[in-house]
Design a protein around this nucleic acid. Structure first.
Lengths: 248, 248
DNA sequence: TCCACCCATTAACCTATTGAAATGCTGGAA
DNA sequence: TTCCAGCATTTCAATAGGTTAATGGGTGGA
């Protein structure tokens, strides 16, 4: 494992995440850093990186910025099914499938690394810990998606929104993007509504309510959680599904 | 690839599924059949195969019967996040994570094969096509989970239920469990309610409505879809996420 | 044969959330 | 400096879906 305190370069976020999820060997870290350096890209906000139906031939790792996965019904109803945050992976292994079932769109300017399929497969074959880390990434994604199912299906509006805030906050923390009790939160209320399955109007009311009870501040694209424990309990939030802590 | 017409033995369902998802080599089929034979188990209805928080050390493949994945909130609200049908896998690769985030419970009597972690890893290492098939299984699971998110978040009651019926029907078809326009549907309305995020009462109302419009019959644990196209369009169902057809 | 128990169904009432539409705010382009 | 576009906010009427509770049917066990 590698010193990650100050820098670690561009790949810092990924490496931090992986080391929490599934520790990397020294050579894996080096190989990953190398691969990231070789395929750097940037995208502006509102760009589609992947569209439903695409066939993909590479894996992308987000270095900075937010994206979201979403699906849209014929009549325009949209559901954001997950956010993709710095250090997270877009589509590990997804080149195995003939087509992608959802779209990925940037919410902010984004920097990402792209690793071509062949390169990626070689990397997986030669670096066992890295292969396991990417595998865990996919499993974790699955777990998050399940938690979203219960969020959408069984929580009431206030709980849904509170839960989303808790989750994002806890996902940003290990990559060092939480400062004090605040983090960046660069999405519109429309996006938030589509992520929680609410109407914009009701989402707005719900946020007012969270503000009124003093649980959060959301202003200038910044989320501040005044009382994290209170918010968690309002959300019935239990972080185990995020696999943030390694077993002993 | 192997003759799978009449029998194929116990592993028939899995092999059929995999061959649609990601074709297996002849040796992979043999190795899989072998592994399945070595670890056969049965469970009665209502048994927990996996409970939230467990750490698992094997992979299970369902040979017959239904199970479901579910999560429960502190106050008892429950969400079924997915069903597991014959030929599907419980937890490929999940031994990599320190703990499982959800529970798996049988809905009916179930026969399944259990492959221990070490055995499974060896199998993956020696049979490339099998490793890819299991990987696809995990990816597909992910895709289904996303579709459930939009089902729970953005469809109205009638659409939700209709969509669930369409999905299950299409998932049972490739393993040969659809006969004519009917399939077994061995779950209670309470389970159905928890799968669609509705109350039992409203779920019942919704089913009445589907019956009244002549779209389905649901009786004696059997679902009959009189007009599949009509049901699909009522559900805004688009099957691409199920990856049922191989690319050319 | 009767009793429990589980599941499906129905009814009546209630409320969380939606939808439409108007108002205001803010920052960037011209 | 003005104007426009994209967001946030508010109001109000409408409704999908929830809650509670009662009823009925079927089935397996004593």
């Amino acid at each position: 494992m590698r010193s990650q305190g100050t820098d670690g370069g561009l790949a810092q976020a990924v490496i931090r995440r992986f080391n929490v999820l599934r520790p990397l060997s020294e050579s894996a870290v080096a190989a990953l850093e190398q691969a990231v350096l070789e395929g750097l890209f940037r995208a502006g906000p509102g760009e589609d990186l992947v569209a439903e139906g695409d066939q993909i031939e590479s894996v992308r790792i987000v270095l900075s910025g937010w994206l979201f996965r979403h699906k849209t019904l014929e009549d325009g109803r949209r559901q954001i099914v997950n956010f993709i945050l710095p250090g997270e992976t877009c589509d590990a292994h997804a080149y195995l499938l003939p087509s992608i079932d959802h779209s990925i769109t940037t919410a902010t300017p984004v920097a990402y690394a792209e690793i071509k399929r062949v390169r990626f497969e070689k990397l997986m074959a030669s670096e066992r810990t890295l292969a396991e880390a990417f595998m865990c990434e996919t499993l974790l994604n699955n777990a998050i998606q399940r938690e979203w199912a219960i969020n959408l299906g069984r929580r009431v509006a206030l709980e849904k929104v509170a839960h989303l805030f808790c989750e994002i906050y806890e996902r940003l923390r290990p990559v060092g993007l939480v400062e004090g009790n605040s983090c960046s939160f660069p999405v519109t209320q429309m996006d938030l509504a589509d992520a929680t399955g609410l109407s914009v109007v009701h989402l707005n009311r719900t946020i007012q309510e969270l503000r009124a009870t003093g649980l959060i501040t959301l202003r200038d694209r910044t989320l501040t959680i005044s009382d994290l424990d209170a918010l968690k309990s309002a959300a019935l939030f239990s972080p185990t599904y995020l696999q943030l802590y390694r077993r002993a």
